[in-house]
Simulated scan of single mutants.
Amino acid sequence: MEIVTSWMQKEIEQGIEQGEQKIVKKLVKRRFNNIDSALESRIDSLSLEQIENLADAIFDFQSLEDLINWLDQQN
């Protein structure tokens, strides 16, 4: 039986969050033909729940302005 300590669990969760951020940023860049570093930083600062919500919302965005508006509502 493998024992997962709390710090190991935290590292696993951090890895999952970073992986999801990477995937969502890739989707955003593909959808809008790249984004600037300021928007990329804003995405990096999102919580895991917000990243998951963004992954769903991106398919509804018609323009980069929609993404910016969505990010503005997350604060």
Rank of each mutant, 00 (worst) to 15 (best):
L46I: 02
I43S: 00
L54H: 07
K25H: 05
L48F: 15
N69G: 04
S41G: 13
F61P: 02
E13F: 12
L46V: 03
N69Q: 11
I12Y: 15
Q21V: 12
I51F: 07
F61Q: 01
F61S: 03
E65R: 14
E40V: 03
L48C: 00
N53R: 11
Q73T: 14
E52K: 15
Q73R: 11
E52N: 13
A57S: 12
E20W: 09
F32M: 04
V24N: 00
M8Q: 15
E2W: 10
W7V: 11
N34L: 09
I23D: 00
N69L: 10
A57R: 01
F32H: 06
K29N: 09
S63F: 12
L46Y: 12
N34Q: 14
E2M: 13
E13S: 09
D44A: 14
E40C: 05
A38H: 11
D44T: 11
K26F: 09
S41R: 08
L54I: 03
E11M: 14
K29Q: 14
S47R: 05
N69E: 11
S37D: 08
Q9Y: 09
W70N: 04
R31P: 02
R42A: 03
D72W: 08
L54Y: 10
L71A: 05
E52L: 14
D60E: 11
Q18H: 13
A57G: 01
V28Y: 03
M1G: 15
N69V: 11
S47Q: 02
W70H: 09
R31C: 07
L27W: 10
N33G: 14
A38C: 08
K25L: 14
Q9A: 14
E40G: 04
N53Y: 10
Q74G: 03
Q62E: 15
S41I: 00
S45M: 06
G15F: 12
K25D: 00
N34G: 15
G15M: 01
N33W: 10
S63I: 08
N34R: 12
N34A: 15
L71H: 06
I51A: 01
M1K: 10
A57P: 02
S37V: 09
S45N: 14
Q18F: 11
L46D: 01
